[in-house]
Design a protein around this nucleic acid. Structure first.
Length: 424
RNA sequence: GGAGAGGUGGCAGAGUGGUCGAAUGCGGCGGUCUCGAAAACCGUUAUAGGGGUAACUCUAUCGAGGGUUCGAAUCCCUCCUUCUCCGCCA
């Protein structure tokens, strides 16, 4: 969430930034009014509390010296009732403000290109060469079926559409890919973690996934747990409600998890094979750092994600998302897309986001900043996330790129020691 | 799932209705002493939110949320969590 103080003190700045995102800015004025009322109630309530505390002390003294305090007690009874009423009112204001705040996205960074839709995203970088095939390429579904390594029909039988079944060398290749990526990110300084896949509502809220994306989550009602849509959620919550040391920043984690997404509202779009699935595998990168270095860290993370694709020799490009397309919690985003020869289009395989203090404010992840005069100040960390990478769309490109004329797959050099075979 | 015992400041650990934001010890920071260090001694040591240019001041916080009371770390209720024992299961 945004800082209420920033809204209070710089409403025009906030509005201008939100306009860039095509947001309805009337909500800011509503918040300002509620906030003003809220502060008034706080003043009155705290004034009464001050009286109550003072008089209660006086009552204690009177009782000790056996004086009659009945009058003061009845006086305070009234004061206490008034406090109760004001605090009730205060809570209402808090709730009303919170409801509005939860749907306001992060402010875009100055470097983010302006745009009105995803069409205005800017190509930032392109790597590799588009391969030319002297035969008709098969798509990943055909390849998977012919080689008997991917079985979407049976996956559907087991769970419904969007739950892929990997078989034999397909399963092994997937495992190889995951291990390869974890090892590479480990070399890049990320500490490997294996996290819970089901998380509490509190954890989802801390990551700013709820309430905005509630419809996209799998929810286990009986235990009130949510299946994570990305390891970002569980990794981010490692340090919820903690105060970190300045010298341990940046803290970098990588973790492989299954990811679960209901993909509500996207039925009928990209339904083929891996293009849009409810369950997929992803190696996630998370970085907790000091505010002043977060944009540098972001560039690093982008390189770390791209490094995987380069080692796999896959043709890819990086897109800098425009103000209309950056993620809810993000101030800046890069998407990495791999090329699908069969679909003849780019597929999103990774997204690197700087969420600044937007998530850390609700998650309360802070650090002790050492100031010049040697004093310390507690400040929110910046949190970044990036996929490094998601396997499903990566697998599409990997299979298609490395197919041979007779329908086999040449395993990329770097994966061979992980897979234990060279060809499928 | 059953039975019991806990959750207090960075840590350990007192505190069962009143000047308790909280004794004491350890640790941390600053100082005295010393050539320097140790020891000893003295001081200091939380977070959040209001108000004030500031010194400062007010409010809240003893697992979380409600309740009783003029007043709650202390009493009552609910939840979370940790530990011990029993049962069940991988």
């Amino acid at each position: 969430m945004l800082d209420i103080k920033l809204i209070r003190e710089n409403p025009d700045l906030v509005k201008d930034k939100l306009k860039l995102r095509n947001e309805d800015i009337s909500v800011i004025d509503k918040i300002l009014e509620l906030d003003k009322n809220r502060l008034g109630v706080i003043h009155r309530s705290e004034g009464l509390k001050e009286t109550r505390n003072k008089v209660s002390d006086e009552i204690a003294v009177m009782k000790k010296s056996k004086e009659d305090a009945a009058e003061k007690i009845s006086e305070m009874k009234k004061v206490s009732d008034d406090i109760k009423e004001l605090d009730e009112e205060l809570r209402k204001y808090d709730d009303d403000i919170d409801v509005l705040m939860r749907f306001i996205p992060n402010l875009p960074h100055d470097s983010v290109p302006f745009g009105k839709s995803e069409k205005d995203n800017v190509e930032f970088k392109k790597w590799g060469d588009k391969k030319s095939f002297d035969f008709k390429v098969k798509d990943h579904v055909q390849l998977g079926k012919t080689l008997d390594i991917l079985d979407f029909e049976r996956g559907t039988k087991i769970s419904g559409s969007g739950f892929p079944l990997y078989k034999g060398k397909g399963a092994q290749l997937e495992r190889a890919l995951i291990n390869f990526m974890l090892d590479e990110q480990g070399k890049n300084g990320y500490r490997e973690v294996m996290t819970p896949l089901l998380v509490s509502r509190t954890s989802m809220e801390a990551a700013e996934k709820i309430p905005k994306f509630e419809e996209d989550m799998y929810h286990f009602e009986k235990d009130d747990l949510y299946a994570i849509p990305t390891a970002e959620v569980s990794i981010l919550n490692i340090h919820r409600d903690e105060i970190l040391k300045q010298e341990e920043l940046p803290i970098k984690y990588c973790g492989y998890t299954n990811c679960f997404r209901r993909e509500a509202g996207s039925y009928g779009k990209d339904t083929k094979g891996f293009l849009r699935v409810h369950q997929f595998n992803k190696v996630e990168l998370i970085n907790f750092c000091q505010p002043e270095e977060s944009y540098d860290q972001m560039e690093n993370m982008l390189l770390h994600a791209c490094g995987i694709l380069e080692k796999l020799s896959l043709y890819y490009r990086v897109i800098e998302l425009c103000t209309a397309d950056i993620g809810f919690a993000a101030s800046k985003c890069y998407d990495i897309e791999v090329w699908s020869y069969a679909e003849d289009k780019w597929l999103e395989a990774s997204s690197v986001s700087n969420c600044t203090d937007f998530q850390s404010r609700r998650a309360m992840v802070r650090y002790k900043k050492i100031l010049e005069n040697n004093k310390t100040k507690t400040e929110l960390v910046h949190i970044l996330n990036g996929s490094g990478l998601a396997t499903s769309r990566l697998m599409v490109s990997l299979l298609e790129t490395n197919q041979t004329k007779d329908g086999n797959i040449i395993v990329p050099e770097v994966l061979r020691k992980y897979a234990g075979f060279d060809v499928i």
